[in-house]
Design a protein around this nucleic acid. Structure first.
Lengths: 220, 220
DNA sequence: CTTTTTTATAAGGTATACCATAAACCAATA
DNA sequence: TATTGGTTTATGGTATACCTTATAAAAAAG
């Protein structure tokens, strides 16, 4: 399979979207990549032909072993670049994901391994995700979506799932970054927003966003 | 004009090839980019339509003012990445040009300016070429092709023109890098190779290669 | 000045990756 | 069970960027 940027993006997106569920609906994939469902189906067939994914019609797609490895190698590169952009170049946290996404496709093994050494083999990206090994293996530290946490439980943000630009700009403004400590102090009815206590301030946060914020109880 | 990788490569190549002559023959451009003359002509027409280059049929192409600026911005990015790869990642000198060439297209202004600051605003790339300003302006320090230098004149290598992989691997092996001091001690007849004195050793070097090595007399 | 070489153009094709529209199909629900 | 809605397939189209083959035109060389 020739490694094009488009194919790498599909594999990466399937990986990111399959974090919760087993099968990723093609429609969801299409929405994620900003293409029509027809285009996504086309590409899904191509990737299936290459043995990178499996497709259960009307159900969704999943990465094969080799597809998963490819995805994780791409993700390793993006997360290494993420660290570089954030830590060394002092690029704004919210911009890092999108910018590292462009660099990941222009990076081969020589560069990514030299970069890893240069950075001192970091273990997580600026959004809190673990950086896979060069051979494409990761262990994902357990964490709980913020919307599943009860009241008055002090938690610390571990990572942000699917950290797109708009979400990150919002979180950056509210200072909800990995490492931030917070407590849910109220919950509006009818699936309304949570009220959080963060750095002595009260913040209102919608359900959808809070599902993307993964936390764990503070080790008190 | 949408900035595709291919277009950026054409503009960059035209710039690099026009260092000596005014007009770059389309055939030369085609050879440089590894495409057929027909394909190069097609692209030349497109770029002319965008106002990035001018084309004098049967003569060659030249960058317009805006095309030159675009080319120099791309070149700035490549040369900054070149410094990063060589100095920070310790990538082998001969590999740097090709690897930085991939990164240049994945870099926007935010990243390239942050990179410039991180690197401490270097003035030359690892091959000795000056790094253009962010607005696309350069001054090229004078230097003489090695094949135009007389005998027994001690010179120092300033830069390597068109530093492709194969050339660089050869030069790296022979230790002919920017900063190296050498003297031409002999010249074979019928356009045969030069004999150089480098680091106490004698080296034989062909004419074509020596035309790519730009030097200046050592300030003795 | 003619011939050869180089350069350009014309015509037809390939591959990737996207689009819209319409028809067929499955699944879940009313 | 029939219908609705999401999914898939089919068809035809776009854009980029490459290819080969062949012809035409200009430049250089004899």
């Amino acid at each position: 399979m020739p490694e094009t940027e488009s194919r790498e993006m599909y594999l990466k997106s399937i990986y990111e979207l399959s974090s919760t569920d087993e099968l990723v609906p093609v429609s969801l994939l299409a929405k994620r990549l900003g293409v029509s469902p027809v285009s996504a189906t086309e590409m899904v067939k191509r990737l299936e032909g290459y043995g990178a994914i499996t497709h259960q019609p009307y159900k969704g797609v999943a990465l094969t072993e080799s597809g998963l490895k490819r995805a994780l190698i791409v993700i390793r590169r993006q997360r290494l670049w993420g660290r570089f952009l954030a830590d060394r170049l002092k690029i704004r946290w919210s911009q890092v994901y999108d910018l590292s996404c462009r660099l990941e496709h222009a990076t081969d093994e020589t560069v990514s391994e030299a970069l890893a050494e240069f950075l001192g083999y970091p273990t997580t990206c600026p959004h809190g995700h673990p950086i896979p090994d060069p051979d494409g293996s990761v262990e994902i530290p357990p964490a709980t979506p913020l919307n599943e946490i009860g009241f008055d439980q002090e938690v610390v943000i571990i990572r942000i799932d699917q950290p797109e630009l708009i979400l990150c700009e919002y979180l950056e403004e509210k200072n909800l970054l990995p490492g931030t400590t917070l407590t849910i102090i109220d919950e509006a009815p009818f699936n309304g927003p949570f009220t959080l206590q963060v750095n002595g301030k009260e913040i209102s946060l919608g359900r959808e966003i809070s599902a993307r914020i993964l936390v764990e109880p503070t080790p008190s």
